[in-house]
Nucleic acid binder design. Sequence first.
DNA 1: TAGATTGTTAATCGATTAACAATC
DNA 2: TAGATTGTTAATCGATTAACAATC
Lengths: 208, 208
Amino acid sequence: MDQNIPDIVIGRLPLYLRELSRMEAEQNRLTASSQELAERLGMSSAQIRKDLSHFGEFGKQGTGYHIHYLIERLTDILHLTREWPVALVGAGFLGHALASYRGFQRRGFAITCVFDNDPAKVGERVGDLVVQDAADMADALRGVRIAILAVPAGDAQATADALVAAGVRAILCYAPVALSVPDGVQVSYSDPVVQLQQMTYHLTLDEG
Amino acid sequence: MDQNIPDIVIGRLPLYLRELSRMEAEQNRLTASSQELAERLGMSSAQIRKDLSHFGEFGKQGTGYHIHYLIERLTDILHLTREWPVALVGAGFLGHALASYRGFQRRGFAITCVFDNDPAKVGERVGDLVVQDAADMADALRGVRIAILAVPAGDAQATADALVAAGVRAILCYAPVALSVPDGVQVSYSDPVVQLQQMTYHLTLDEG
DNA sequence: TAGATTGTTAATCGATTAACAATC
DNA sequence: TAGATTGTTAATCGATTAACAATC
C-alpha cells in the first residue's frame, strides 16, 4: 500500500471500474483475469496487476479477480462510497446535455444545482433543476466540492475564481482555456477540438 | 525533424496552438517566449522548446517565437490547413450541443452530417443540419474520415464498426465504453465520469 | 496434481528537466 | 555590447514490461 501513487495510475482506475461493472452487468461472470480485462481495455495485463498492487492484493492465483469484490475495492479507493454533489455552471446546450445525462447518478455523482449569469436563463428548467443566478453561487455552493464548467471561454477564468472562492476543489472544465487555480484545486479538461486536432496529425490531407 | 514523434508530444501541440491563438486575438502581441507560454499553460518552458524542436527551429534567441508564424507552423504540422468534414452520430442532447458548438468551425472542423437510428429523430433539425437515418451512413459518409460518436453505450461498438466500414479513420467517442477498432483507426475518448472519479480520489469524503 | 494466474522484481523503455553554448 | 532566449545535450526521473516464483 503506497503512500504516493502516480496520477497516471489513478487515472486508469475508473476505466477498470467501468469495464468491470460492464462485465458484471452484461454477463454472468464472477471472476476476471488481468489478461481478460487488459484485452477489453487494450492494455497489458502486467500494467493492470501493477496498478492494483499499489493498493493491496485483490486477486487469487489461478483464478484472477472476483469482479464484485474488485468493484467494491475500487469504489472505496476512488472515494465513491457516497454520492458526490456536483454544481453545473452554464445552462447552454452543453449544460442541458450534462444535466440530462443519466450516467452521473449511476456512477457516483449528482448534479444538484445549475447556474447561469444570463438573466434570461435564470428560472428556466434544465433537467430536473431550475437555473439559479451565477451571482448567488457563493451561498448556494455550501458543501459542494466539485463543479462542471460549461460556460463560454471568455467567462471561464472568472467563473473558476468564483467557484474556488466558494470552496470548490475539483473542476471539470469544458471551456477551451487553460485555467489558473491555486494549489490544491484540481482541474480536468475536455476540449473536443484539441482531441480532433491530435488525430488529424495522423491523417493525411490529400484525397477527400 | 524526427520521423517518429511521440504521441504525447502531438497531444500538446493543439494546446500550444490554442494558447497562441488566444494571445494573438486578445493582445497586441507579436512574439512570445517559451517561458511565457509555459506559464500560461502550467508546464515547463524546456518541454515546450523540446516539443517544438521535433519539427524544426521556429524561434529566435533573445526574442522567442513570432506568434503568428508559430501558429502557421502548428496549423501545418497538425494538418489543419483545410477544414475537415466531421460526421456526428447521435442526435440526443449531447448531439445537439455538439452540432450547435461554434468552436469546431473556428478551429478547423465542420460537422457536415448528423445521424440517428431513431426514426422519430430522422428529419429533425439539429444545428443547421437535418438528421439522417443511421442506416444510410455508408453512402452519406463518402470522403469523411472523422466521426464523433454520441450514442448510448449499448450502441457504441456497432456504430463504430459501421463507421470504420464506411471509411472513418478517427473517432471521438463520448460513449462510456472502450471501443475495439482495427489498426490504423484512432479513437479518442471523453467520459466526464471517468474524469470526475479520478479527481474524487484526491478529495476526502468526510465533512459535507 | 497440472494448469492458470497472481504480485513483484529487475530490466527496459521513454519522457522530463536542468544547464549551457550559441546567437539574436 | 549586454541581456534574453533559443535548441540541444546529458542526466534524471518515472512508467511499462517481461519474466517468474509463489500459490490457488
